[in-house]
Design a protein around this nucleic acid. Sequence first.
DNA 1: TTTTAGCACTCTTTTGTTTTGATTGCTAAT
DNA 2: ATTAGCAATCAAAACAAAAGAGTGCTAAAA
Lengths: 334, 334
Amino acid sequence: MLDDRKKKVLQAIVEEYINTAEPVSSNALTSNHGLQCSSATIRNEMADLEKSGYLDKTHTSSGRIPSEKGYRYYVDELLKDDDISLEEIKYISSKLETKVNEIEDLTKIAANTISEVTHYTTVSIGPKANEQIIKDIKFILLGSRMMMAVILTDTGLVKETIIKFDEDVTEKQVETINYMFNKKLKGQPIEKIDRPLEEYLYDEMTYSVNVIKPIIEQIKKVLEDEQIYLEGANKSFDLPEFNSLEVAKNFVNVLDTKELMADMLNSGFADDIQVYIGDENPKEELKDFSVVTFKHKVNGKDLGTIGIIGPKRMDYSKVISVMKYINKKLKEIE
Amino acid sequence: MLDDRKKKVLQAIVEEYINTAEPVSSNALTSNHGLQCSSATIRNEMADLEKSGYLDKTHTSSGRIPSEKGYRYYVDELLKDDDISLEEIKYISSKLETKVNEIEDLTKIAANTISEVTHYTTVSIGPKANEQIIKDIKFILLGSRMMMAVILTDTGLVKETIIKFDEDVTEKQVETINYMFNKKLKGQPIEKIDRPLEEYLYDEMTYSVNVIKPIIEQIKKVLEDEQIYLEGANKSFDLPEFNSLEVAKNFVNVLDTKELMADMLNSGFADDIQVYIGDENPKEELKDFSVVTFKHKVNGKDLGTIGIIGPKRMDYSKVISVMKYINKKLKEIE
DNA sequence: TTTTAGCACTCTTTTGTTTTGATTGCTAAT
DNA sequence: ATTAGCAATCAAAACAAAAGAGTGCTAAAA
């Protein structure tokens, strides 16, 4: 366990490094940071902290930088989670008051707001339909061989898709389809749109496979479809760590890989805020970055996930404060 | 006017520079490129070409690189537009055979294919609704205060949107709305959904402003909405010009600015392929890049636009060949 | 008149060396 | 337990020299 002064030193180093991106020297900590001792004493403390793995050196005679263990300790034990100004609160509130017609948009707006307030890159993904309960399905004929299906869920999610057919479909058929789908699916979870349902419908209805099959297929497809939204990719490029071309390239690569982003946002089951520091990231490609994710849930139902990607030297304090505040606000809206 | 040998020299330099990204020396051109003369002669030709503005030097004793005028001449006069292999043709064809339910998807697939074949970053934007003719509008009640509007146009474009109300809306009202909108709009261009229509509807229908207003507003909003799709942002980072942090940063900035991308894709009225080299770009921010855009049109109706963004040292030959082929293929599909 | 060989000159790139300065770790004094 | 003092360490900056690639020009050859 770290004694009080060690905690203070560690905290000071983490915060200083987050601010300056430069290794922190023993001297730098004597001036402010409320440490009442000489640089020599701090040097001793730093040596200890390094021995226990909380700090790293870039070379023999350099100042210290936090190790991943150091960041972790900081996030778990030393963090302030109310690092948010009145202006920021006002700004966030006003942004979240935007009227939205689709709940996905709320997640997008939240992600956009987080990116603006924290100056980090965010990614977001809409609600996962799978867990939701079907409230209503509507089929609308848009042409002789084209139909739209609209699925409404208990959380207010609306998913619609166009379905095209190789043969004509009549108004009458659509009515039956409407009736049958609703009879079987209303009140059921979305994953009930599956193979057994398809078989059942083949039996019950006299229409050809050419009608039922595309409907099921297309609905499944649109429900699985995970659209990723990116905000402020350019913001990261102003950070000094992105002066290394390798890091910058890696970053663009990561952002460009939609599957990776989706996996990242879907990993972690927690309802709340998750912090992944460097190697803690489930994805190898993210090992040089820190990721903070937060799932927007209501009654255990996923309404979308937002992730911040930044350097390990991320301003965790600010990020977590902002996320907590937004989380609170979102819950109020529901 | 350039004589034959000068053309050959210019072409060789452009192509060599596109390949190697290094200033081209007089010596490099003697070996291959079918020039039957010594390096001294080539040096003289190069000096001439530089004097006429087709070539630049990076410093006094360096080889030459094409100037923007040089690239322009190359694109206008020296380009081969059938620089496409059998494998590429096969690959493109197979990709474009993918069944799509919405025409926007076709543009996305084409953009993705172009990015894969050329290894450049592409951006794409869906069809502009404005110019299209309304074929049908459908309103579907999704709840007591929620409605969906679906607009179908003559080119097969389908746009749908959710509209929420502050008061209850009845099935009966929806029927009237359906009737009125279709009566006024069927066969009309989409821009007819405007203020005069709104006024007319206020007069004709007895419903409150609270119903008509959100419908018109939301429909207008969704029709104006321009979603930009990005493909292969990471590919550009493998190019040597992106070793300059400034260029890389600029590039990410540009891609991140959706409005800029939209403007870029919307600029230029031509039906066909447009090449913007460096300063020719209508947007200042793109002056270090070359952009090739291509509008996918059928009967003069916009079905989406695709843009390639890359270094000025872009492989115009390949890019234009691929675009031409894809353009041809797309026309076949319609 | 056009082409080419030859060579001095220019400028970048690379490599090596020295200097500077920040910061530590350790020792001995407080 | 803390601190002042100082040698040791190492990165980064500044400087210098050498190497190499390529041109432009001149004068000879075609």
